[in-house]
Simulated scan of single mutants.
Amino acid sequence: MSTDWSSALLNKKALCLLFCLFLAACSSNKAGVSNATKGSYSGSTYTVKRGDTLYRISRMTGSSVGELARLNGLSPPYTIEVGQRLRVKSSASAGASRTASRSTTASRRPAALPKVDAPPPGQRCWRWPTSGKVVLGYSTADGGNKGIDIAGQRGQPIYASAAGRVVYVGNQLRGYGNLIMIKHTEDYITAYAHNDTTLVNNGQQVKAGQKIATMGSTGTDSVKLHFQIRYRATALDPQRYLPPQGRSPSC
């Protein structure tokens, strides 16, 4: 991996974006939050309520995630607490932004976000991160499961699905418990959630099949592994890319 400053900065921005995507996905997987539980917004401050994420607050207040983080001294993974008061753009700034937005929308149609095509199976070699029954599969539905859930026994070993570098070890992302994220080249990241114990550290290089954790139930109500493969921050269906259970990859 390149160690020049521009590459390091791009990698940091990409990782911050991925944290935001995980926060947003985690929030959408929870039971729907009623309007009564949403935070109060005064125009210059926002009071955090249950179920809020920085991404959701940015959408409601018209501020960007980066701007909210800067105004409130937050750093990735942007952990916020219920009852916390966050500074947002002033009413005048927000009004100007809304006016500019309406003017821009009226003059031209917004460009659609580029669609990321899923890579073909077999492009990379992936190993099953653990053994067990898949109790919840991948879903493309809004708020659906963005990986697979594999049931097992507490303490069961969890393995790196491919060689790479550990870019996150922690439990700050609500709903994922003890989470490990491993970066594989510039395009791929795998995630391993609900671990009982974690056996790797941030920045550590790992080999394919290396034991990185033990299975647990942190952040959930049953013993299982939640496993994701993400391509350019887009969640893929892991079962399209993994070999049949019990077999080594053929590539």
Rank of each mutant, 00 (worst) to 15 (best):
Val116Asn: 08
Ser101Cys: 13
Thr61Glu: 00
Gly51Asp: 06
Ala94Arg: 03
Val116Ala: 12
Pro119Arg: 03
Leu113Ala: 15
Leu74Tyr: 07
Tyr78Val: 05
Ala111Lys: 14
Pro76Arg: 04
Leu86Ser: 02
Ser103Asn: 14
Ser42Pro: 03
Glu67Arg: 12
Gly66Tyr: 01
Gly95Asn: 08
Thr53Pro: 07
Val88Pro: 00
Glu81Ile: 04
Arg50Glu: 13
Gly51Ile: 02
Gln84Ile: 12
Arg70Pro: 00
Ser103Cys: 10
Gly66Ile: 01
Pro121Ser: 10
Pro76Asp: 10
Arg102Phe: 11
Ala100Cys: 12
Gln123Met: 13
Asp117Ile: 05
Val65Leu: 09
Val48Gly: 07
Asn72Glu: 04
Lys115Gln: 08
Pro121Trp: 06
Asp52Arg: 09
Ser93Asn: 06
Thr104Val: 10
Tyr46Pro: 02
Arg98Ala: 13
Gly83Ser: 14
Arg50His: 09
Asp117Lys: 13
Pro120Lys: 14
Ala100Val: 11
Gly66Ser: 11
Ser91Trp: 02
Ser44Val: 15
Ala111Ser: 15
Pro76Val: 13
Pro121Asp: 07
Val82Phe: 03
Pro121Gly: 05
Gln123Glu: 12
Ser97Lys: 08
Thr104Asp: 13
Gly122Asp: 05
Arg109Gly: 07
Ala112Gln: 14
Ser103Tyr: 10
Pro120Phe: 08
Arg98Met: 15
Ser93Ile: 11
Val82Glu: 13
Tyr78Arg: 04
Arg102Met: 14
Ala100Arg: 11
Ser91His: 01
Met60Arg: 11
Arg87Lys: 15
Thr61Pro: 00
Ala118Asn: 11
Ser44Glu: 11
Ser63Asn: 09
Gly43Ile: 07
Thr53Gln: 09
Thr53Cys: 15
Glu81Cys: 11
Lys49Pro: 00
Ala96Glu: 13
Arg56Pro: 01
Arg59Trp: 02
Ala111Trp: 05
Thr53Lys: 07
Pro110Asp: 15
Ser90Asp: 14
Pro120Cys: 09
Arg70Thr: 02
Gly73Asp: 04
Thr99Met: 14
Ala112Val: 15
Ser93Met: 09
Thr45Pro: 02
Arg98Glu: 05
Leu68Phe: 05
Ser58Ala: 13
Ser44Arg: 04
Lys89Leu: 01
Ser91Leu: 07
Val116Gln: 09
Ser90Trp: 05
Gly83Trp: 15
Thr47Leu: 06
Leu71Gly: 02
Thr79Tyr: 10
Asn72Thr: 05
Arg87Phe: 02
Asp52Tyr: 06
Pro121Ala: 08
Leu86Gln: 07
Ile80Glu: 06
Ser64Ala: 09
Val88Met: 00
Ile57Pro: 01
Ala92Asn: 08
Ala96Lys: 06
Ser58Glu: 00
Arg70Cys: 02
Val88Cys: 00
Ser64Trp: 01
Ile80Trp: 08
Lys89Ala: 01
Leu113Tyr: 03
Ala106Val: 12
Ala92Lys: 03
Gln84Leu: 14
Arg59Pro: 02
Gln84His: 11
Ser64Ile: 02
Asp117Glu: 13
Gly43Glu: 03
Val116His: 08
Ser101Lys: 10
Ala106Trp: 10
Arg50Ala: 15
Val116Thr: 14
Ala69Ser: 11
Gly43Gln: 01
Arg108Trp: 10
Leu86Met: 07
Asp117Trp: 06
Thr47His: 03
